[in-house]
Design a protein around this nucleic acid. Structure first.
Lengths: 162, 162
DNA sequence: TATTGTTATACTCTATAACTATA
DNA sequence: TATAGTTATAGAGTATAACAATA
């Protein structure tokens, strides 16, 4: 006995819509959760007067943990095209967070690294991300959070092997 | 004892990078899972000779289940701006899947509905989505899939309440 | 005055193709 | 020949601001 999706008299209120099969879809739940999490990430950084996207954070961590990384290797790790990476690196470099060094062994590649300012900024960003994570996992027990991360990894592994 | 992230001699292979704290982050796991799921969705539709994004599928389902919906109500349900919705509807209408009817009660609004072709197409799309869902949940038991959807909903509810 | 839909505009993410330098 | 990085270009998704029609 579902309530009438659109009352004959007026307009349906937001959040009152019939979503049909969508609520049972893993992909749909994933999309909606990610959208909410993205919004919380953005709001966390905006409130702190910082500007960063989740993708930029991931990129900075990868560069910090894998110093000397080439752009190709980074693009592969991020699963994006090498041409897509160029403007992203340009922006982070313009902000003084990241440098392209010349590789001593291969004239074609750039060795990526954080600047000292980038290291300092990443430390600040990491604190914000931890607060953000705490907030989005607030409705879950520690065991549930662990389980969720594990299940997400299984999904990725399964869907990844096309 | 982690293996060295970047061997001193050469370039790190893809997938062999040190991801540091990222692997413990819920937001990161969510992003990666969603990316893999999106790729499987796209590949499923491409192989079937159909062109549709997950967002378009969700939109079509909402319109089908809530006939006469206005653009404002739909935009709210999708959590996007009303101006963002316009070119998306234009495209679906140009494909003959959807119509904007005049509202009999409010001259400002459009009453959205699927065309007969849209209904037929949605039935095809739904079959493809079900096959896609089966594939991305292949590594999970039925109980795990249920639990995952439930946990994702908890995350969304928690992060949604900013 | 407020709401709905549209347009103009801009920014980001994404990709493909072609170019340059290097291997 | 093949690879790395860049540029040019294009398409989709997102937003804000301003406008016309309607309430």
């Amino acid at each position: 006995m579902a309530s009438p999706p659109v009352p004959p008299n007026g307009k349906p209120r937001a959040g009152n819509l019939d979503r049909g099969m969508l609520t049972a879809l893993l992909g749909y739940g994933l999309r909606r959760a990610q959208s909410a999490v993205f919004a919380d990430f953005a709001s966390t950084f905006a409130k702190a007067g910082e500007a960063l996207t989740p993708g930029e954070f991931g990129l900075l961590v990868l560069v910090e943990r894998n110093k000397g990384l080439s752009q190709m290797a980074l693009a592969r790790a991020l699963a994006i095209d090498r041409s897509t990476l160029v403007p992203i690196l340009n922006r982070l470099q313009a902000r003084g967070l990241l440098m392209r060094h010349a590789s001593p062994t291969d004239g074609r590649t750039h060795a990526l690294a954080l600047t000292p300012e980038g290291e300092k900024a990443l430390a600040r960003f990491t604190r914000l991300v931890k607060a953000h994570e705490k907030r989005i996992a607030a409705g879950l027990s520690a065991a549930e959070t662990r389980m969720l991360i594990e299940l997400l990894d299984k999904v990725r592994a399964g869907a990844g092997s096309l």
